[in-house]
Design a protein around this nucleic acid. Structure first.
Lengths: 334, 334
DNA sequence: GTGAAAGCGCTAACAA
DNA sequence: TTGTTAGCGCTTTCAC
């Protein structure tokens, strides 16, 4: 591997000049040409470790997710990778598998690896834990949160409450009065907000909320399956059900299929996330679609801004609208 | 941030001793205790850039995939991340979005970022292109291929031919004689091998192969949908169809649903990848299940071995068995 | 616009 | 076992 020194010798210029050129400084046109030629023939590549040692910046971003295998996160991640690469950043990807201990451990791991910034989807972590990390507290490693909320941090979120509100409203308009919903753990902010949306829709139409119809899952397929069965086993089961993420939607529909229930003839259903779902199921189902590309873009942009040292409008909270994609899974109650 | 020098001053020991201890060398028990205490109170963390500059090793691995959003790759990736983190490596994740240009560009990107090793799922890249990279040619950056094959490189592959052979055999045993198959682009080795499996099953039972029944998709949902429709539009359509990856399976089934075809009453179907599929579809479908966890494990182990400098048994080819998960999507032809 | 020189934090001889 | 020292490749003052 050739170094800046080799380029210096080859061109007869000092390493300072080479470095200057490499970092976008002004050099005589004649020298520029010589440097370019030297870099080409020597196959010179900058040594990022040396640069990082000197500048304290690694041009690396850490992305920390609960799981990689959730399509919602995987798609966001793909978008972020694309945006970051375009800016010359590489992406350390970590997953904490929904374990609170791993969540904090991986966060420390990323900070210790000297990433320039972190994008994370928090789960159990508190503002205190985050602030407990020196690099974070002193804003030397900016952290932008995604999808879920922790106070006092930059964050990009979907409008979860309205998303569910509008979906439930759609069911109400179609005549449903007993609407089941499978939400995530209430300590996860998305789940909490979605529950609010459910209640708000009921309030709008002066309908009572039966707490039995609000089932708590854990965002896994299995929990969607289990809670759907619990709903269907009620003495007075709901005429419509809503799943509030991709996995629980899949689980819930599987449960309905197993009982040979026809959607929407026997029961209406609204799902969440991933366009694929709308068509793959038989029949296609109505779903809440989150603005994945926008979430990724805003998050990345805020992080890039913070990494530039621009701490204007801190903490920045960005709320993005969802869409209700109407298909054939909502009918009128029996 | 405190440095090794601070620890040195705090303990009264030389930085060489601190460094030695930090790298697992022997130190007097008394000194060890002092170092530990100093590290604790000063909150010392090694500077990875400095270490990398000195050692030429970054303890970073690059993982390069065609897409992040394919569940098959996402799950493999999650497994790899877990294994790598356990070894203290962090994972740069890149996707080339199935573009040949991006594939080679991202590969260079990773090499240039000085990763210690690379795991990649190749698509269009040739052995020559790979060997064109100095770091790779001189085995300074080991590359282990996954899922797809390029000669003369370490690689971990599924037994694609047997996987499809056994699935098609299952259909033949059930009385099917006109079996459609939607394969990927034949220049991708998995697709080529799966096609061989299809032909081999036919040969085993002395059945003719109708080339019209072998449809070529591109591993996308849309192509599965399109090719399934092409099959169903034939004057003499197949009585059974097989999809050869997750996406095309989803597309094909969507097409069948749209025509109100009942599986397996109207047509039999065997899918590929992802257990979820077996249950989510109505009815659950028989699928080929690839050994995701094993693929990740073997790949990671080979890479770790190479990064240790152990080039024994090169190039290593690891073939892993798939499973045929029987469900309710295969019946007898009409 | 260019160059000399210092030093980022660490590892690895080598000497003691 | 411990310490001294050189130097990894780069950026960045500060003279010129």
């Amino acid at each position: 591997m050739s170094t800046i020194k080799d380029v210096s010798q080859y061109t007869g210029l000092s390493i300072a000049t080479i470095s200057k050129y490499l970092n976008g400084g002004n050099v005589l046109e004649e020298n520029r040409a010589r440097i370019v030629a030297a870099v080409e023939t020597l196959g010179y590549k900058v040594n990022h470790a040396a640069r990082a040692l000197k500048t304290n910046r690694t041009r690396t971003v850490g992305v920390l997710l609960p799981t990689l295998t959730t399509p919602f996160f995987a798609e966001i991640c793909a978008n972020i990778e694309h945006l970051l690469t375009a800016e010359g950043y590489s992406m350390f990807l970590c997953s904490y598998y929904e374990h609170p201990d791993e969540e904090i451990a991986k966060l420390h791991f990323l900070v210790e690896k000297s990433v320039d910034g972190i994008i994370m989807v928090p789960q159990s972590i508190t503002a205190d834990s985050l602030m407990g990390i020196e690099q974070v507290r002193e804003k030397r490693t900016p952290v932008v949160l995604m999808d879920r909320s922790v106070a006092e941090f930059d964050r990009v979120l979907a409008d979860n409450s309205s998303a569910v509100h509008d979906a439930v409203e759609e069911l109400i308009i179609n005549g449903h009065r007993r609407i089941g919903i499978i939400i995530g753990p209430p300590d996860i902010t998305t789940a909490f907000e979605r529950k609010i949306g459910y209640e708000r829709a009921h309030a709008d139409y002066s309908l009572p909320v039966d707490p039995e119809l609000i089932r708590i899952g854990d965002y896994s397929i299995g929990s969607g399956y289990r809670e759907m069965n619990a709903l269907l086993n009620m003495k007075e089961p709901p005429t419509a059900v809503m799943g509030t993420n991709h996995e629980m939607t899949v689980g819930a529909i599987t449960a309905a299929y197993e009982r040979k229930l026809k959607i929407p003839d026997d029961i209406s259903f609204i799902g969440y996330d991933e366009v694929q779902l709308t068509k793959v199921f038989n029949p296609p189902i109505t779903i809440v679609l989150q603005p994945i590309e926008e979430i990724a873009r805003h998050t990345t942009e805020i992080l890039l801004k913070r990494m530039r040292g621009d701490y204007g409008a801190f903490p920045q909270v960005c709320r993005l609208k969802t869409k209700l994609l109407l298909h054939e899974s909502v009918g009128r109650p029996l």
